[in-house]
Design a protein around this nucleic acid. Structure first.
Lengths: 215, 215
DNA sequence: GTCTATACCGAGATAGAC
DNA sequence: GTCTATCTCGGTATAGAC
């Protein structure tokens, strides 16, 4: 294992009396799972990062797998919070675009969710089954019907709903999830500044007629 | 660790006398690294999958890290072989499109490369540094100058070279790398059949004027 | 070059004192 | 709820017979 930079080195003996240890553990778990994948992440490091002991994880969550699910569900809840105004509500281009901007803004602030999803996306597992059934499929349906409504009213580029889904998740959100790599290839890719610019890029692909603007 | 389906169960005692054990180990390593990430992959399973013993890996390659680099380099060589006619050669739309089709065809047959790249893309590591410096940066430059030439001659959509790079790798290649997830969301995503259709989708985004064709 | 045996470490999980 | 101690397992790597 490569453990380049030591975790914030939680002080050893005196652990501390956290109001919300469970929350802290979930925060730490998100980072570790996103960086090393499920198999590669270790509950020891997660506990360390949260300033807790490793057995606390088994106490507060039942197992590593339960911790993973709780972590993912929490990230989805945070995203839903940031989206509030749902995608399927207004079928207007404005509402749809607004939802996309919120989604991408969230993805730039919390790239962990898309990272975790992408780590699981490449090989079948019970985690992937759960992820799709519990979280992704409902979202996919919402986006699909919203796009269908737009297309029916003559708006939007000539793309299928599945193509739009992939554009949003792969091209759109991965821009932030893969920032460590992209920043090594390009001038700058991570951080908030580029978030709105990338959203513009996505929207230009989806609505070329509306946003032909030069760069 | 979740080890859902047992590896082809290499016969135990009688190992075999392989012509190219190293090649077999690299094939097996590609699959395991792509499925579980560097940390999650185990040299035992890789050896098992190749019908070899675990210590053989340390004999033929120096370490797990060396095995990983050899695996990645081999996949890039296979891709270069499939691309043969280089991207930067002709600056015509036809040559560029042809290269993209070859790239995506390779990605659909060997999704392991894009999977491995994506696994490393999300967090800094010495492996990511090596990957970018050795393999990705040269490719990125080639694509960049090829696209610049096209744009200079008035061809192609209003996209920056970096946007094109992300469209090709994230939207384009990930379609195949993430097939296990996408196939659970959509009607069908993996396998060769959809490869050309997805290439059409990518090219339609890059050259809307030329390929406005309905679906 | 191939195999067995094994060293050594870190993983997840549990028991039980506090 | 928190902590220490510890169990068991699987990880990478090495030594050495063949």
């Amino acid at each position: 294992m490569e453990r380049s930079n030591a975790v914030p080195t939680a002080r050893r003996h005196p652990r501390r009396r956290p109001e919300h240890l469970a929350e802290d553990l979930l925060d730490a778990a998100a980072i570790e799972f996103a960086s090393h994948g499920y198999d590669g992440a270790s509950t020891r490091r997660i506990a360390d990062r949260a300033g807790a002991h490793q057995p606390q994880i088994n106490y507060h969550f039942r197992s590593k797998e339960h911790l993973w699910r709780a972590t993912v569900s929490r990230l989805f809840e945070m995203m839903a919070l940031q989206l509030r105004r749902q995608v399927d509500e207004g079928s207007s281009v404005g509402a749809f675009s607004d939802a996309i901007r919120r989604f991408l803004r969230f993805s730039s602030v919390h790239p962990e969710l898309n990272r975790i999803i992408n780590l699981e996306a490449t090989s079948p597992s019970s985690r992937l089954d759960w992820l799709v059934a519990t979280h992704l499929d409902p979202l996919h349906r919402m986006v699909g019907s919203a796009w269908a409504a737009l297309r029916a009213s003559g708006e939007g580029a000539d793309l299928t709903a599945d193509e739009v889904w992939e554009l949003l998740t792969s091209y759109g959100a991965l821009h932030f999830a893969n920032a460590p790599m992209l920043s090594r290839l390009q001038t700058s890719a991570d951080g908030d500044p580029a978030a709105e610019a990338h959203a513009d890029s996505v929207l230009r692909l989806l609505f070329p007629a509306r946003m032909p603007g030069p760069r």
